[in-house]
């Protein structure tokens, strides 16, 4: 007989938080990662080693709203819901469309994708270049951390046991003038885990680079982003010179260290990551999107 498990499904966020304050629980938003992670053999239910707390139904965690130029996204918004929402930037929608297939997108959530902290997490490269901040809530109140500080290693995040990721904040994302690209390379066009992914962000004013950011997925334990390399390009005339491009690509060549696995090879991942970077840098015209 299957063993009994304890599961909670409160009507409100504050009850959920006070339970979390008492007990370390496994949080289930959409469950699309948790269920796979704890899968048992055929005919046996998943074995989740902690009490389970369901948060997928909490409307407090599903709000999407604008505050000044920032976009706040409730962590339990499903991918399907975000695709329907007019506030969500096109680039993020394009990234979401590459995730799994409609059935999974109806369950999976943006907050779940972050807290799962997979090296190949599909929304992560974009969230990194958006400088996403995460609002964590507990009985003690709120705190805000940068996504790059929150995700520490594969499946390791800086969440205290009594906290819930409540909102994802994309600062200044509703400001006009930036151009964002996202490319996911998988073995097929749906239901695929990224072999490489790339996000690029650029803002140009007066033919000079105002702001530029890059993040790479599936080529290291977490997203690869380097503020130092990005800084070298600030204020440079656009389009970039061949020398500048070569030097940035060479810099990333030093820090991107992918691995061989059952999905692809290290050589492939690195080649493609650098190709996508060079292509982004080489593009001589950008329409803000």
């Amino acid at each position: 007989m299957p063993e009994k498990i304890t599961a909670y499904r409160f009507d409100y966020l504050d009850e959920t938080l006070s339970q979390l304050n008492k007990e370390d629980c496994a949080i289930v938003a959409g469950g699309t990662d948790v269920m796979v992670l704890h899968k048992s053999g055929r005919g046996v239910p998943p074995k989740i080693p902690k009490p389970v707390v369901f948060i997928d139904h909490l409307s407090e965690l599903k709000r999407v709203y604008q505050k000044d130029k920032d976009l706040h996204i409730g962590s339990c918004s499903t991918y399907g819901e975000l695709l329907e929402n007019p506030l969500i930037p096109i680039a993020l929608k394009n990234a979401i469309k590459t995730i799994a297939a409609p059935a999974i997108r109806n369950r999976g959530t943006l907050g779940g994708n972050i807290c799962n902290a997979s090296p190949a997490g599909d929304t992560l490269p974009l969230l990194y270049v958006y400088n996403a901040k995460l609002l964590l809530r507990s009985v003690n109140g709120d705190r805000v951390v940068a996504i790059s500080d929150f995700i520490q290693a594969p499946r390791r995040i800086g969440r205290n046991h009594n906290e819930i990721l409540a909102e994802i904040i994309l600062p200044s994302v509703l400001e006009e003038g930036s151009h964002v690209v996202f490319e996911k390379i998988g073995n097929r066009n749906a239901d695929a885990i990224a072999k490489v992914s790339f996000a690029g962000y650029i803002r140009i004013s007066n033919e000079r680079i105002d702001d530029i950011r890059f993040a790479f997925g599936a080529v290291g334990p977490t997203m690869v982003r380097s503020i130092d390399i990005e800084k070298k390009l600030l204020g440079k005339p656009f389009p970039l010179s061949e020398t500048d491009i070569d030097s940035i690509v060479a810099d990333f060549d030093q820090i991107i260290r992918p691995i061989d696995d059952q999905r692809s090879t290290a050589v492939y991942r690195k080649t493609v990551a650098l190709n996508l970077l060079r292509y982004f840098l080489n593009t001589s015209q950008y329409q803000p999107n």
Binding site: R188, N189, A190, D191, A192, I193, Q262
Partner: peptide
């Protein structure tokens, strides 16, 4: 390759 997603047979989008 021990799962369908790692092996990668085509989907309707392919």
């Amino acid at each position: 390759q021990k799962s369908i997603s790692d092996y990668g047979p085509p989907t309707s989008l392919d």
